[in-house]
């Protein structure tokens, strides 16, 4: 069973639709027992870091997430919240991955948010990208980015900046793009996460 964590910044509908298309059973829940008993956990996110973290803290989900040991995938804001710190309203995050989240600075010719399809260059060998061609396009929408760091398993360029577009540390994975909105390659990545990681 896959648990999708329910909270105030979830973009859960499209993630649920993608899992339905993959034929994978899932539950949308904020219940500790249900999350602990899941084989895989997905942590989606569209919204603002500070209010998301306050919500998660109030409901005890912060300590719950930190203690999980099954494969865990953060998507978009869900990935950024795995970091130590986000410049978005100076937010202390889950601190599961040594990483900082920065704001794209305004620059001539570059629009913010970084919105649309961009290429993802991944390190060979990561199971998330099995069967996907390197430099394939994935769909992004974000105004903050994860700096390039040791935990990066894939990188993307925008605004003259190379940022981490996918990260991994222990059982925690994160992707800045939206696999649930990235066509066939996106579905493949979700399926890889569910089948190839344990």
């Amino acid at each position: 069973m896959v648990a999708i964590i329910k909270y105030n910044a979830g973009n859960t509908q499209s993630v649920m639709c993608a899992l339905k298309r993959l034929g994978v059973p899932f539950i949308l829940t904020d219940d500790e027992r249900e999350i602990r008993s899941a084989d895989h956990v997905i942590f989606p996110g569209v919204g603002e870091a500070r209010s998301a973290m306050s919500y998660l803290k109030e409901r005890g989900i912060v300590s719950l997430i930190r203690s999980l040991d099954m494969p865990f995938l953060g998507i978009c804001l869900g990935m950024q919240l795995l970091s130590s710190f986000s410049e978005e309203n100076d937010t202390e995050c889950l601190d599961l991955v040594p990483l900082s989240i920065r704001r794209f600075e305004k620059r001539d010719g570059y629009k913010i948010p970084h919105m649309g399809w961009n290429t993802v260059s991944f390190d060979e060998g990561c199971p998330l990208f099995n069967g996907i061609s390197n430099d394939s396009y994935f769909y992004f929408v974000h105004s903050y980015y994860a700096e390039d760091a040791d935990c990066a398993i894939a990188r993307t360029d925008y605004d003259g900046i190379t940022f981490s577009s996918a990260i991994a540390k222990d059982n925690f994975y994160g992707v800045q793009f939206h696999p649930e909105k990235s066509g066939e390659d996106g579905l493949r990545l979700l399926s890889n996460f569910l089948k190839e990681t344990r």
Binding site: Q13, S14, C17, A18, Y139, E180
Partner: peptide
């Protein structure tokens, strides 16, 4: 529509 396509 949402259940049938995986693009925005």
């Amino acid at each position: 529509i949402s259940e049938n396509i995986s693009i925005p």
